[in-house]
Amino acid sequence: MRSTRVALYDIKPGTYDEVVGQAKSGMVPLFKASKGFVSYGIAQVDEKAFVSISTWETRAQADDAAVKAADWVKANSRDRFTLRNNYVGDLAIDTGHREPAPIAH
């Protein structure tokens, strides 16, 4: 059963556009190179917060992604954004993988 990781982050100094740039250059390659990767995206939920959503083939891979993301944020972006909450859960409904939407920023 596929699982998803949803993480809520607070943006510190800087902008959401800067977060998108960091995600493109850092988190995307990291996750794409990880076993069980299905999809990844981020969405701004208010002026100073965003969510990261990734889907994985198994719960263990989603849990591993949480660790990888936390390590990456500590090493690369702690001054720009910080993790508020992290959730991992099994997908009850999964309509499948489609081509990702183009990044608007």
Rank of each mutant, 00 (worst) to 15 (best):
1 M>S: 11
2 R>Y: 07
2 R>Q: 06
2 R>T: 07
3 S>M: 01
3 S>E: 00
5 R>M: 14
6 V>M: 12
6 V>R: 05
6 V>H: 02
7 A>Q: 11
10 D>R: 09
11 I>D: 12
13 P>I: 03
15 T>Q: 10
15 T>C: 10
18 E>S: 12
18 E>F: 07
19 V>N: 12
19 V>K: 02
20 V>I: 15
23 A>S: 11
23 A>P: 00
24 K>W: 11
25 S>P: 12
26 G>I: 12
26 G>E: 09
32 K>G: 14
35 K>G: 06
36 G>A: 10
36 G>P: 07
36 G>M: 04
36 G>C: 10
38 V>E: 11
39 S>R: 15
39 S>L: 09
40 Y>K: 08
40 Y>Q: 07
40 Y>T: 04
41 G>V: 07
42 I>F: 03
43 A>S: 14
46 D>F: 01
47 E>W: 00
49 A>W: 00
49 A>R: 15
49 A>Q: 15
51 V>Y: 01
52 S>W: 02
53 I>A: 10
54 S>E: 04
55 T>K: 04
56 W>C: 10
59 R>C: 06
60 A>V: 05
61 Q>C: 03
61 Q>Y: 05
61 Q>N: 12
62 A>E: 04
62 A>Q: 02
62 A>F: 02
64 D>N: 13
65 A>I: 04
65 A>K: 08
66 A>R: 10
67 V>W: 00
68 K>T: 03
68 K>N: 06
69 A>H: 01
70 A>I: 05
70 A>D: 14
70 A>C: 06
71 D>W: 00
71 D>V: 00
72 W>A: 06
72 W>T: 03
72 W>G: 03
72 W>E: 06
75 A>W: 11
76 N>G: 00
77 S>R: 00
78 R>H: 05
78 R>I: 12
79 D>R: 11
79 D>E: 15
80 R>D: 12
80 R>G: 13
81 F>H: 11
81 F>A: 01
82 T>R: 13
82 T>D: 05
82 T>N: 01
82 T>G: 14
84 R>I: 06
85 N>I: 03
86 N>E: 14
86 N>F: 03
87 Y>A: 14
87 Y>W: 10
88 V>G: 01
88 V>Q: 04
89 G>P: 05
90 D>P: 03
92 A>W: 10
92 A>D: 12
92 A>S: 08
92 A>H: 13
93 I>C: 07
96 G>L: 04
98 R>S: 14
99 E>S: 04
100 P>A: 10
100 P>D: 09
101 A>D: 07
101 A>N: 09
101 A>R: 05
101 A>I: 14
102 P>I: 01
103 I>F: 09
103 I>W: 14
105 H>R: 08
105 H>A: 12
